[in-house]
Amino acid sequence: MDRDKLVSLYRQMLLIRVFEDKSAEMYARAKIGGFLHLYNGQEAIAVGALSALRPDDDLVTHYRDHGYALARGISARAVMAELFGRETGTTGGRGGSMHLADVSKRFWGGYAIVGGHLPLAAGLAYAAQHHKTGRVVFCVMGDGSTNIGTFHAALNWAQLWRLPVIFTVENNQYAMGTVIDNHSAVTEIYRKACAYDMHAEQVDGNDVLAVHEAVCRLAERARNGEGPALLEAVTFRHRGHSMADADVQRPRSQVAEWKERDPIPAFAEVLLERKLATPQDLEQIARDVEAEVEDAVAFADASAEPARETLYEGIYAEAVSNMQIDGSLIGPPTLGPMIIKNGMGRHG
């Protein structure tokens, strides 16, 4: 990687960090509702991995997906607007934080049922194999996902059909609040791949360059028809599972120890040591990303909520008439504006 690309990795990681901190603030101010899972501490994985892939490689993620959306090049404006539930968000306020997506960038979405997206990733890899596109599917999950049935069903199928997919586990050592020793019989997650005779590697998830190199290797293997792989990236969350988590179950000493291994200052050291950036460069980047995130908040706040009359749009690819949808047998459900009476939708 050249100097500009290396510096851009730093910028992306810092953008994610500042974005996440601002999201927490907006959540506290009730601008964001529901579940909000922040990526603080794990930024090196999304940034290292996506910088190793082609922009048209397929991306499928878990619900801790803000970092992946930003690293894929989706604007902070569109992501923040989605968190705010506005029409300018990535899914127009339909999916929210856990379901960001931009199919034009082949980001097929964040998924919120633990492990539910793994078969979808295998299926996208089948499509790539069938159509001989040369694309690789990057699928990311947490350590808690590796105990559920779809993990085993998807890995078995992917290896059986030699599908071009990289299953990446962000092992942050807690499944929600349950420590890995209490949720997985095998705590070195990469070893689970041996059950399917699948190639597997473990990498320091707090080292952006190590992640980048690992994903480069695995993507090349998959593109060469050598099949899928399981990559375990060992890392740690700086915050609780979600904004609803008071984070009382993790020992303070463990949290403090991992904050010492923060991937962002660590990579800043690398850039400074190799004289790829000056302290002034890094300060400028910090000012830039702060401004970008402030702009995203202003944009989201100024954006309209999705219009009430669009409520039924998109349930089906083509609008269908269904008395169960709107109580009318006549015409598709999107024909006219909705009039709300006693909570029941009727077309006016």
Binding site: P119, G123, L124, A128, H130, A154
Partner: peptide
């Protein structure tokens, strides 16, 4: 395919998303 209905439907869905 393997006897794994969650994968039959889920892998099918992913393939459908990819144009199959």
């Amino acid at each position: 395919v393997p006897i794994a209905e969650e994968a039959i439907v889920g892998v099918g869905l992913g393939a459908a998303m990819g144009g199959i």
